[in-house]
Design a protein around this nucleic acid. Structure first.
Lengths: 121, 121
DNA sequence: ATGATAATGACAATCATTTTCAAAGTAGAT
DNA sequence: ATCTACTTTGAAAATGATTGTCATTATCAT
């Protein structure tokens, strides 16, 4: 099918935080890389499938990506400045599992995000 | 400026869960209401500003709205048939609160959704 | 009724994302 | 090196949600 373009990954590494497909593309262009927007989208999609990157949504709905570790975690995002803290979600995992069982659901996954105002804002 | 159209609100009440602007509009049309899509968007925007509705994002980025009643709850959705169960989220509330405090965040809200396969599917 | 102000909706514009498809690259066999 | 089958690429068009525009319509106090 389609593998992820390594230059996209390395750019995202360099960013060290969240970036949208459009931003990654612009950044690469600015740095002289010749790559199409389509390829950037495809690569990010791939990386997402391989669980190498995480996706989140900005307030306007634009998808933003960033590298994620191999452990399943959640985010605490500042609504004001966008700073993000990774959170351990052990409590959530347990909760999800028990709720699922109660309701007779199988293969239950979950999303959970916290947002607020950080200490500096 | 622009106040929210009460029919939009009452439609959302009737839905009793999440719905996108497009869905609210379609629903109203099906029920014979004559209203423009633009007005639906504006009204939801208004309701959001007045904190009468909550907004969330679907996986594809489409914005979905729901009344934010006084009891905060979560959803367990079947990926296959779409059936939805409302879940009490006391455990999450506590978790969110404690995490927020640890990290020095204020005014922390959260989103949490569970999805899986229901017993009938 | 009149005029000021706000609400409405058809339509066009915007913008992220996806799809299409033909061209370019790659690897392996001969 | 040449041929062939397969994959990757990217330009351009399509899609779909959301927002902007602006003329028309409703509202309401005078």
């Amino acid at each position: 099918m389609s593998r992820s373009n390594p230059r996209v990954l390395s750019t995202l590494e360099r960013v060290g935080g969240f970036a949208s497909a459009q931003e990654v593309h612009k950044l690469m262009q600015r740095e002289g890389e010749r790559i199409g927007l389509t390829t950037v989208y495809r690569s990010l999609q791939s990386l997402l499938g391989e669980k190498i990157v995480d996706v989140l949504r900005r307030e306007d709905g634009e998808a933003i990506y960033r590298l994620c570790g191999d452990t399943h975690h959640h985010h605490l995002v500042c609504k004001n400045c966008g700073i993000t803290v990774e959170i351990e979600g052990g409590a959530i995992e347990k909760w999800a599992k028990s709720v699922a069982q109660e309701q007779g659901f199988r293969d239950v996954g979950h999303t959970a995000e916290l947002f607020g105002t950080c200490a500096d804002c």
